[in-house]
Simulated assay, not measured.
Amino acid sequence: MNIPAIFSFKLGIWQSLVFVALFVWVYCLVDIVRHEFKNDGKFTWLLIVFFLPILGSFLYLSTEKSRRMLKA
């Protein structure tokens, strides 16, 4: 059986995308656990990012500055 080279290339692209998405998801979860948040939003962000990995990670990273507690 001869597998076309294009199949291997497409498979490699998909595997790379999945690896990046997994890395970003784990990064967001670790970042949530390590930092303090305004109004006790840590549990809410954990639920959002855990159950909606791609969308939750994108939302978490896009609102990073506004959600953290400022340390004086």
Rank of each mutant, 00 (worst) to 15 (best):
N2M: 04
I3S: 01
P4I: 07
P4L: 14
P4Y: 09
A5T: 13
F7I: 10
F7Q: 06
F7C: 01
S8Q: 03
S8I: 05
L11K: 06
G12L: 10
I13E: 12
W14F: 15
W14T: 10
S16F: 13
S16L: 14
V18P: 00
F19V: 13
A21C: 10
A21M: 12
L22H: 09
F23E: 03
W25R: 05
W25C: 00
Y27T: 04
C28Y: 01
L29G: 05
L29Y: 05
V30I: 15
V30E: 12
D31W: 10
R34D: 05
H35N: 05
K38M: 02
N39W: 07
N39A: 10
D40P: 03
D40Q: 14
G41F: 03
F43R: 12
T44D: 05
T44K: 12
L46T: 10
L46E: 00
L46I: 15
L46C: 07
L47Q: 15
I48N: 09
V49M: 10
F50L: 12
F50D: 05
F51R: 05
L52Y: 14
I54P: 04
L55W: 14
L55F: 08
L55N: 08
G56T: 00
S57W: 00
S57V: 02
Y60W: 09
L61Y: 11
L61S: 05
S62E: 11
T63S: 08
E64M: 09
E64L: 11
E64P: 00
E64W: 14
K65A: 01
S66H: 05
S66F: 02
S66P: 02
R67L: 01
R68G: 11
M69G: 08
K71V: 11
